[in-house]
Design a binder for these strands. Structure first.
Lengths: 331, 331
DNA sequence: TTGTAAGCGTTATCAA
DNA sequence: TTGATAACGCTTACAA
C-alpha cells in the first residue's frame, strides 16, 4: 500500500485530520504542538510521502492547474509564448497543461472540454479560427479565460494582444521613409482579425504617405500550402510589378519562405528591396541584416496573461474583462 | 450547483450507478435498456455535462495524463520533441503536462514530485544533468518512465536516444571524404554523456582516416555564455590553426552562432570550410547550403517514447526495460 | 434492467 | 491540542 495521510495517521496513532493539517502547512495555525508537527513531518519525509493532488483537488475544488491551448506547440512563436506563460505560472504554484489545437477549431473545442474536465482553474487560449460554443459558455459563465495573440471581437473576453495595426503602420512607414516607393504585403489567413489589422495598418501607412493602394500588391498566401503558394504568388508579383521595391511580411514564416524564393531566383533581396517583418524567427536577422522587425513583446504577453488569469481565478465573481494591447518594438 | 452524475440521477429518477455507467460508455455492456441510455445521454448533453476527471481519477486510479519534463520549452528542438510526443499521446486519449526544468536538476526533482502528485500515469524526461533521488525511486519502484534524448548510463531505465557516436562518426567521415584535411569540433556541456559520444564519434572518424586528433581542435563551449564563448574560442582557433578546413558542430545553436561569427568576420565559410552539424534548426540549410546534417528522427523518437510508456503503463508489472537507439539520417 | 453502498485520498467543520 | 465525520464526484462490486 502506498503512503497516505491515512496510513501515516495509523502508524503514528494520530487522526487523519491532524496529519492532514500538519502536512498541508496549517500545523502552526491550527495550534498543534511543535512536537507532533515535528514527528509527523519527519515521518512523512522518511516515507517519501507524496500528496495526491487529485484527492486534494476534489476536496478543495482547486486543482492548481491551468490549461493553455495553442495552434502548434512546435512553432517557434507559440513555443516562446508557452515558455513566457509557464514561467510566471510556475512561480505562483500553478502547473500548465499544454494542448495543441492544430489550428482546428473542432479540436480546440474538444480540448477545452477535456481541460475543463481536468478541472483546470483557468484557460489561456490562442484561438484558432471561428468561435466555438465552448467559448460562449465560458464567457457567459464567467470561467477564468484569457485570450492571447488573437481574440474574438464579438465576445467580451479578457485578452492580451499587440497593436497589430499600429505596429504594421509604423513598420511600413519606416520602409517608406527609407526610400521604398512601391511596397507589397504578404499575409495569410486573411480571415483572421489579426491579419486584417496588419493589412489595414499597411494600407493606412500607404495612404498617409499619399501612395495609392494597389490590391495586386497585397498577396494572401494559402496557409495550408504556404511553401508553394508563396513561390507562385511572388513569382507572379515580380513579373507584374518589376518595380516593386519593398515588402512587408505579415508573419515570420512568410518572410522566411520569401527569402528562400529570392535566393533560389538569385535575387539580391537585401539590396533590391526594403524589407519589414512582423515579429521574427531564428536567423532572420542574419539572412536579412537590413530587414526591419516589429517585435512582439513575448514575455510581457505571457506575464500579462498570467496575471489577469490569476486575478480572475482569485476574485471568483465575474468582474470586468481586461483588454490589454501591447506595443511592439521596431528594430 | 453544477451538473454531476448525482444531479442527473436525481433529475431523472435514476441511480448514480446507472447514470455513471451509461455516461462512461458502459451502458450497452451493462445491459441497460436502449431507452434509458438515450434519455440519460440526451439529458446530459442538453445540460452540457462535463465529467470531473479528478473524481474519476481518484476513483479509478487512472488520470489519463502523462508528464513531460524538458530542459526548455522555448528551444526549437525540445518544442519539436514535445509536439512529436503530444500527438500520439493525444490519439491514445492521454493529455500531456509539460514542465520545463531549465536544465536545473533541482527544479527537475521538484517537477517530478509535482507531476507524480498530480498522479500522472507515467513520465517522459529529457534529463538535465545529474541523477536525482527521484529517478532512483522511480526506477526501483517500477514507475512508468521513459528517458529521451539523453539517459543515465548508471540506471536501468527505458530510453529512446539516437546513436550519437555513430551519427557523428558518419558525419565527420563525410566531411573528410569531401576533402576536409583538418576538422575541428565544437561541443558544449561536455560532461553530458550525449556530448561525450559525439566527441568520441568525431575522434574515431579522424582515427579511422589516419588523421591525428589534436585537442586544440576540440572546442568546448560554455553553454551558459555560448554567444561570447563561441566567438572567443573560434577566434583563437582560427589564429592558431589558420589551415583548419572543416567543422563539426555538435549542436544546432553552436552552428548558428558560428555562422554569426563567420559572417561578422567576413569569412566565406561556405567555401572555405566543410561543415557538418548534428541536427539542424530553422534556416540553417539556407545559411549554409553546403552544410551536412545528421538529422535526428524527432517523430520517431516521440512515437517510440509514447509507445514504450503506454506499454509500461498497461502491463503494470515491472518488466524489462527497453532501450531504443535510433539512427540519424545524413543529409 | 436497475439500485445500494463502499471506497478513492484529501480537506473542513465541529466537537471534545 | 487533537479527533470524528461528512463531503468532494465518480466508479464498481454486489444485490435486487
Amino acid at each position: 500500500m502506498s503512503v497516505s495521510v491515512q496510513s501515516i495517521a495509523n502508524d503514528l496513532g494520530l487522526s487523519k485530520a491532524t496529519v492532514s493539517s500538519i502536512l498541508s502547512g496549517n500545523g502552526k495555525a491550527k495550534g498543534f504542538s511543535a512536537a507532533t508537527i515535528e514527528t509527523v513531518r519527519n515521518y512523512a519525509d522518511s516515507l517519501g510521502y507524496i500528496p495526491n493532488l487529485l484527492a486534494r483537488g476534489l476536496s478543495t475544488g482547486k486543482s492548481n492547474t491551468v490549461g493553455l491551448i495553442i495552434p502548434a506547440v512546435g512553432d517557434t512563436f507559440y513555443s516562446q509564448i508557452t515558455q513566457a506563460i509557464e514561467k510566471p505560472l510556475g512561480e505562483r504554484g500553478y502547473s500548465l497543461i499544454v494542448a495543441s489545437s492544430e489550428g482546428d477549431s473542432e479540436k480546440e473545442s474538444k480540448l477545452i472540454q477535456l481541460l475543463r474536465s481536468q478541472k483546470v482553474e483557468g484557460l489561456i487560449i490562442a484561438p484558432s479560427k471561428l468561435q466555438s460554443p465552448e467559448i460562449t459558455e465560458m464567457v457567459s459563465s464567467g470561467f477564468p479565460l484569457v485570450l492571447v495573440d488573437r481574440y474574438y471581437p464579438q465576445f467580451d473576453t479578457n485578452y492580451v494582444v499587440v497593436d497589430n495595426e499600429g505596429a504594421s503602420r509604423e513598420l511600413v512607414k519606416c520602409l517608406i521613409k527609407n526610400g521604398a516607393k512601391k511596397v507589397a504585403i504578404l499575409t495569410t489567413d486573411t480571415h483572421l482579425f489579426v491579419m486584417k489589422r496588419r493589412l489595414f495598418g499597411y494600407k493606412s501607412a500607404l495612404a498617409d504617405a499619399g501612395m495609392n493602394v494597389d490590391d495586386s500588391l497585397c498577396l494572401s498566401i494559402d496557409r495550408a500550402d504556404y511553401h508553394n503558394d508563396t513561390w507562385k504568388q511572388l513569382g507572379n508579383l515580380l513579373e507584374k510589378h518589376p518595380d516593386v521595391d519593398g515588402f512587408f511580411m505579415a508573419t515570420h514564416y512568410l518572410a522566411m519562405e520569401s527569402i528562400r524564393f529570392f535566393m533560389s531566383e538569385g535575387i539580391d533581396y537585401n539590396n533590391r528591396f526594403k524589407l519589414g517583418c512582423f515579429h521574427t524567427t531564428t536567423a532572420l536577422d542574419i539572412l536579412a541584416p537590413k530587414m526591419f522587425f516589429s517585435m512582439m513583446p513575448i514575455n510581457e504577453i505571457g506575464q500579462e496573461a498570467v496575471s489577469i488569469l490569476i486575478d480572475n481565478i482569485a476574485e471568483k465573481k465575474p468582474g470586468n474583462t481586461v483588454h490589454i494591447t501591447l506595443n511592439n518594438t521596431l528594430l
